[in-house]
Each structure stands twice: as structure tokens, then as C-alpha cells.
Computed example of a mutant assay.
Amino acid sequence: MLINADFSRRAVLEVEEQQWINSPQSGVERVMFDRVGEEKARATSLVRYAPSSHFPHHMHPGGEEILVLSGTFSADDTHYPAGWYLRNPPSSGHTPYSDEGAVIFVKLRQMPSDEDRYVAIDTHDDDNWQCQGSRDICPLFSDDGEQVSLQRLNTGEALFDENSISGAGGTELLVVEGSLIDDEQVYQRGSWIRLPVGEQSQIKAGLEGVTVYIKTGHLEQVIGL
């Protein structure tokens, strides 16, 4: 299965275009943003757990990255309410479930084989945020291959400064709160945008400002897929 699998091109899925489809597990649905492979795939998705739904224990070759958007996501005996960011490195495994229901943003099989760091960050904890210029940033992960953060921008503020383009390895965005504007196009909460390596962008925060998940630097390695 190939969905938005040409990583040299811009890909966008606005919230009103998103379609939930059933996963093989009862009570769990997905919106597929990009995908290379069948059930065991390199994939970026939203995953929605109905109350009392679960996946059986499984491994994650290639790793797993999660941002909990609503409800409470649980893995084994640990519970992560909305706002938690998680990274489970390659060869890790768990039994995921949700008692109350949850929606999570998930990236699968997108880590180098030598990544070994577990990450768990509560982005609702003010201590995890720092002021950088006119915006607030919650750093989530950084290495030689990618940088991941949540960023809060004020109304009309440009996402990239005049010296910055998505060309430095490409950029991936998920609107967590508020909206983004690109020319005359408005991307509301839940919209997903992937900008390829080398693309200039004038994206800015919408009228109410924005909180956005932003990952940069990671697309150079996947253009050949």
C-alpha cells in the first residue's frame, strides 16, 4: 500500500478530508497520512481507540513515536493523558490500550536501527517549555537526523524565518491547536502537512495563533523509498 509515498512532493490532509477506517483490531480506527507497506508498514497516522479497546502485545521494529491528542492512552501499566509525547525505540514492544478512549498521532518504523532512547514528555507541564524569541517551544527530541518539538506561535507569526526553509531535511507539521495559514489556505486543528526537502514556505499562524507539532530534518533519508 502506498499513500503519499512520494516524499519529494508536498502532502496535505486537511481535517475535513480525513476518513477513519477500521484497523484489524476491533475498536481501533485509523486515518492514514502516509504509508509504505501493508499492515506492517512505514506509516504516519491518527489512531482512535474506542473505550476499552486494545492491541495485543507486539514489537516495534523501526520504533514508534506517539503524541496523545485526546483521552488517555495506556501501554502496559502506564497511562498517558492528552499532551504526552512518547518515543519507543526499535525492538521495543508493549501492549497498548485505552480504558476511556483516546486519539493519538503515531509514526511507525521511522527510526534508525541504533536509536535506543525511550522518551516520555508531558507537554502540558510548563516546565518543559522555553521561550525562544517571540514563541514558546517544547523540545521533544533531537539528534543528527531530526528535530522534533511543539511550538506556540502568536497570530500571524511566520513558522519559518526569512533564512529558514524546509529544505534542511524537509518538514512535517500537525496542527494541535488553532490554525496555520499558507497563502489563502487555512489549516485547522488536526490538519497534517508534509513539506519536501527544498520547498520554500510562507506558512504562518492563524487568527487565534497556533500550537503545532513540527519535525524537521528527517525527509532526506526517505526520498528514495
Rank of each mutant, 00 (worst) to 15 (best):
G63A: 00
G101K: 10
G145S: 14
G71R: 03
R117D: 07
A102I: 07
F160V: 02
L86N: 03
G63Q: 03
P89S: 02
H58V: 05
R117M: 06
D143G: 08
H60V: 06
T171F: 02
S149A: 14
H60R: 00
G83S: 08
V106C: 08
C138R: 04
Y118E: 12
P139E: 10
L150N: 06
F55H: 03
F73Y: 13
L140M: 05
G169F: 11
N128W: 01
I104N: 01
A158T: 05
H54A: 13
F141R: 11
V148D: 10
G93D: 13
G71W: 02
P51Q: 06
G71P: 02
R135M: 06
D127G: 12
A82Y: 07
G83V: 10
V119W: 09
W84R: 06
P139H: 04
D144V: 14
P96N: 05
G145R: 14
V119Y: 10
P139W: 07
A158W: 07
E146P: 09
L108P: 02
P90N: 04
T171N: 02
I121T: 09
N163Q: 15
I66T: 09
D183V: 08
S92L: 06
G170T: 02
A82M: 00
S142W: 10
A158M: 11
L108F: 11
P112C: 09
D144E: 15
A82V: 04
R152P: 00
E146R: 15
Y85R: 07
P81G: 09
S166R: 04
H94S: 12
W84M: 04
D127F: 08
E65I: 10
T72Q: 14
I165R: 13
G101F: 05
H54F: 12
A75T: 14
P81R: 05
E162A: 15
P81Q: 08
H57R: 15
F105K: 05
G133T: 06
T95S: 15
E146W: 10
L173T: 02
L108A: 03
C138N: 03
G156L: 02
P61A: 04
D116Q: 14
G93P: 01
W84L: 00
T72N: 14
F105E: 05
D182S: 14
H124E: 12
N163K: 15
L153F: 04
P90H: 09
Q110R: 04
G167E: 01
S134V: 07
V103R: 05
Y118R: 11
P61M: 05
R152C: 01
I104F: 02
A75V: 15
H94F: 07
R135W: 05
